[in-house]
């Protein structure tokens, strides 16, 4: 791997007496699509939260493009190109879909007219054109996920996109739409992705490499075929072989 665009070393996060991340190392190369899998409670979201400034690590270092970002506020980290989505979709409920997408664009001092054109184009590609001017609170759960993911693509500065379980609880059509959006952004902007998911067939298609987390640590890293055949991974998934 060439020098990684995103690198975390020795990340520790404790909640009271409980250690949710216990010395996590991860390095993602530019243009890579990295998957993160692991059983519920393994600490995946906690890792995402630390990398994106939502939680402050108790120890460890985070580098984005070689520069330390540990301790920065989420907006400062987003301004540097590292953007995320949340496991439970967060949208601006009282704002229309177009307005939702304008927020990240205007935050980088983009022009309203251009932002609106981009937003409507993206909403069209997300098959939400019919709802473009409706408040986001009227969306279904799956549509909300889609809008949330699309919002990240409206960031002009986007270089690393961390998606926390973007395929959970959405129907196959929306899954494919999200995959299409990701493919387009990779092709056109060379965005790096870190995708947390339990959907093995999607991860197989999507990811270059997989990081497996168990009980707050990185168990191993490799291609999906490599990790899926590892007996420790199988054991971590309670004896269910990964398909």
């Amino acid at each position: 791997m060439t020098s990684p665009v995103l690198a975390a070393t020795g990340l520790v996060k404790r909640f009271g007496g409980f250690t949710a991340n216990d010395g996590v190392d991860i390095a993602v190369g530019a243009g890579e699509v990295r998957g993160i899998i692991g059983p519920n409670g393994a600490g995946k979201t906690t890792l995402v939260n630390m990398i994106t400034g939502v939680e402050r690590p108790n120890a460890g270092e985070i580098l984005l493009g070689g520069a330390p970002i540990g301790g920065l506020a989420p907006d400062a980290i987003a301004a540097r190109g590292l953007v995320r989505s949340f496991q439970v979709a967060r949208v601006f409920g009282d704002m229309s879909l177009v307005e939702n997408l304008l927020v990240p664009y205007l935050a980088r001092r983009g022009r309203l007219a251009e932002g609106e054109a981009r937003a409507r184009d993206l909403i069209g590609r997300a098959n939400l054109a019919r709802l473009a001017d409706a408040p986001a609170k009227t969306l279904s759960g799956g549509q909300r996920v889609l809008l949330q993911v699309a919002a990240g693509f409206m960031c002009p500065q986007l270089s690393v996109y961390v998606l926390d379980e973007p395929f959970a609880g959405v129907n196959p059509v929306i899954k494919d739409t999200i995959l299409d959006l990701i493919a387009t952004e990779r092709r056109e902007r060379n965005v790096t992705f870190v995708v947390v998911s339990h959907e093995m067939d999607i991860m197989r298609r999507l990811c270059d490499r997989i990081t497996v987390m168990v009980e707050g640590r990185v168990l191993l890293e490799g291609t999906l075929e490599e990790v899926a055949s590892d007996p420790r991974v199988v054991a971590a998934y309670l004896g269910k072989p990964l398909r």
């Binding site: 907006d75 967060r90 949208v91 601006f92 409920g93 935050a107 919002a151 960031c155």
Partner: peptide, 11 residues
Amino acid sequence: DDELRAQSLGV
């Protein structure tokens, strides 16, 4: 509507 979301989008 959602302060943390706004922050995470760079606001």
